[in-house]
Design a protein around this nucleic acid. Structure first.
Lengths: 194, 194
DNA sequence: GGTTTGGTTGAATACCCAATCAATGTTGAC
DNA sequence: GTCAACATTGATTGGGTATTCAACCAAACC
C-alpha cells in the first residue's frame, strides 16, 4: 500500500535508525551488533549495510538524529538562559537514553576520527549557542562581552558533567546542580559589572 | 637475580598494569585486546589471565591506578582551592592519556555494572573532596555552608566537561576555562555572603 | 636430589562480529 | 506484459576476541 520505492526505503531507513538508537543507548557501542539492530528493526542483517555502508556510518547518522533531539529553543537574552536551564532540567529526567548514547559517542569518538569530528561539531555548536546567550545577557547588563567565550566553555563543560553524574549516580541531585550552575553563571555576569 | 617468586610476580603484574594503561588509553576499551596488552608488556597472553581473571578485572585494576594518579593534594581553604585549580591546569596539558582513559571508563561503566561502580566511587570521592574545600572557603568567609554540596556538584561537573572538551577540541582554551571556573566558583561564594 | 609451589608459555577452544554477495522479491515505467 | 531499478534476504567469508588448558620452568624447601 506504499506509493513507490523510495518512500518504502526511507521508511525502513528510519526504522533502522530508530532501532540503532534503541540498541546503542541500551548496550553501548561495542556491545551493539548490527545483527541485534537489524532484529530490533525487524529486517535482515544485510539491509542495514545496504542503507548504511558501515557501522560507523550508521552511528554517525544516529548522532545526527541525537543532535536534533538535543537542540534547544531560540528565546533571547536572560529569559532565554532561564528557558534553556529549565529545558535542560527536564531533559535530565526524560532523555537519559539520549544522554547515555551521547556520552558513549564522545568516548568512541576519542579513537575514531570520523565520529570524533561529528561529536566535536556538535559540542562546538552547542557551546556557540551558549556563548550567544551569554553575550546577550552581558549586553543587557551593559557589561564587557569579552568573557562570554570563557563563560560558555564552563557552562558547556558543566552541562556535560552534570549529564554524566546524573547518568551514573542515582543519588545525584540534578535539579540542585542546575540551579547552582544557573546562579553561578549569573553571578559571573554580575561580577563583570563592577 | 630476584629474591623469590612473589617479587617476580608483582613485578610482572605491574608491568601488565602499565601496559594495559598504555594500550587502553591509546586505543580505547573495545579496541584494546588482551593479546596486544600482553605484547606491550612483553609476556605471554595467558599470563594476563593468570594475574587478572578477566579483562574487566584488569581494567578495574587500571582504574584504581588512574584514580591514584588523579588524586590531588591536601592544602586547606582558599589556598587549597587555588592549588587544586593550578594542578588541574597542568594535568590538562600533561595527563591527556589518563583523562582519555578516564572518559573511556565512564562510558564503558554506563553498561558494565562492576566497572560502573568503580567509576562512581571515584567520582563521588572527587566530589566529596571538592565539597570539603568549598566548605572550608565558605567557613573562611563566614558564609552559610549549605550550598557547598551544590557548588561541588557543579565544579565536579565542570571539571569533567573541561576534560572532555580539552581532549576532543584542539582549539579549546583550557587555561581560560579553568580561570573562568575559578572566578565563577569564587563569585558563587561571594554571592552567598550578601 | 627430589618434590612442591607458583609463575609462565603458547596453542587450542569456542565464540561473536562487520561486511560481502548472489539470489529473490517488489515496484513503477514503458 | 516485460524490463530495469531498487529493496530485501540470509548464508558466507574472513577475521577477531576472551578465556582455558596442558605442559614447562625455576626457585624454595626438606
Amino acid at each position: 500500500m506504499l506509493t513507490d520505492h523510495s518512500t518504502r526505503a526511507t521508511d525502513t531507513r528510519s526504522r533502522i535508525l530508530q532501532a540503532a538508537f534503541t540498541v546503542l543507548s541500551r548496550q553501548g557501542y561495542e556491545n551493539a551488533s548490527i545483527k541485534e539492530i537489524a532484529e530490533q528493526a525487524g529486517v535482515a542483517q544485510g539491509l542495514v549495510h545496504y542503507h548504511f555502508k558501515s557501522k560507523q556510518q550508521l552511528v554517525l547518522a544516529v548522532l545526527a538524529e541525537v543532535c536534533r533531539e538535543m537542540e534547544f529553543g531560540e528565546e533571547q537574552g536572560a529569559a532565554g538562559a532561564q528557558a534553556a536551564y529549565e529545558k535542560f532540567k527536564s531533559m535530565l529526567k526524560g532523555k537519559r537514553a539520549t544522554h547515555a548514547l551521547y556520552i558513549q559517542l564522545i568516548a568512541v569518538g576519542l579513537h575514531d576520527k570520523e565520529l570524533g569530528a561529528g561529536v566535536l561539531d556538535f559540542v562546538r555548536q552547542d557551546r556557540a549557542h551558549i556563548e550567544d546567550i551569554a553575550r546577550q545577557v552581558l549586553a543587557e547588563r551593559e557589561a564587557d562581552p569579552k568573557p562570554a567565550r570563557a563563560i560558555a566553555s564552563v557552562v558547556e563543560a558543566a552541562v556535560l558533567g552534570i549529564m554524566v553524574q546524573n547518568l551514573i549516580d542515582p543519588d545525584f541531585n540534578a535539579e540542585e546542580a542546575v540551579d547552582a550552575l544557573n546562579a553561578m553563571s549569573l553571578s559571573a555576569v554580575f561580577a563583570e559589572e563592577r
